[in-house]
Write a protein that binds this DNA or RNA. Sequence first.
DNA 1: ATATCACCTTCGAGTAACACGAAGTCAATG
DNA 2: CATTGACTTCGTGTTACTCGAAGGTGATAT
Lengths: 136, 136
Amino acid sequence: MYSVKQAAEILHLTEHTIRYYTDQGLVPHMKRDKNNNRIFDEASLKWLECAKHLRKCGMSVADIKTYVNLCLEGDSTTQERYDIFMKQKHIAQVQLEEAKERATYIEEKTEAYLDILQGVDSDDMNTVNKQAEPFK
Amino acid sequence: MYSVKQAAEILHLTEHTIRYYTDQGLVPHMKRDKNNNRIFDEASLKWLECAKHLRKCGMSVADIKTYVNLCLEGDSTTQERYDIFMKQKHIAQVQLEEAKERATYIEEKTEAYLDILQGVDSDDMNTVNKQAEPFK
DNA sequence: ATATCACCTTCGAGTAACACGAAGTCAATG
DNA sequence: CATTGACTTCGTGTTACTCGAAGGTGATAT
């Protein structure tokens, strides 16, 4: 059993975000202790983890809520839920590619800056937005 | 020379976003045609591309603006700009790892759903939030 | 007993980065 | 000459937090 703070640490989310997600109904069967404090079991953490990943794929909180509701409806919605995940799978793959491109882009910039700082003469100043100076 | 629409297509940003970025000063030396329409040259596209990547790394528009201003100040800020990129490089790498994890997570869920749909008997229903049914 | 932590709670307001739509300009086309 | 389509500005709306105030609870220290 975990507190909000512990859940936040485990999942690398802020406490605010976790309270927000639970309030939005992204974690079914949320339990409270006698002082009304949220308490998370393993299942709760899994729901939160699921929400976290889906959010990062760009799914809105409202749509995640819809997905959670489908889960609660049981077997009759399995196909529908599968379809949702197939869609997200594609998005996740695109995002992975983008993350790679981004890392490469930034890596190249960093290298170019390094060259300048080390006094390497480069014709390709564009790489580091030497556009700073009047562009020619 | 490109219009807003063309720039949006090339960079995979919305027209709204491109107008927003230019208005925020993320693209120095923005040019307009005689009808006051924004026109983008290669340099403008590079600034936008840079802004796009930095945004995706989580850098705020305000901080990107600061970076752009440093660029405009010229050589005296090279070290500072390098430092910024080193920091972003680290962030980009972390994000890449997260993107991988996410893709894996979703891939596994998709597989688990597929197993169910194909009638495979699985003990690991948790994998697809079978938590739907009364948890036991 | 009381004070001081370190948690937790709710709630309401603030924020960033768009997203949207209205209202209008302008050039080209049928 | 009217419509089409792409552009403009401007102001409001939205999402998903993010922050902070105000207060409750329980354990430990004085």
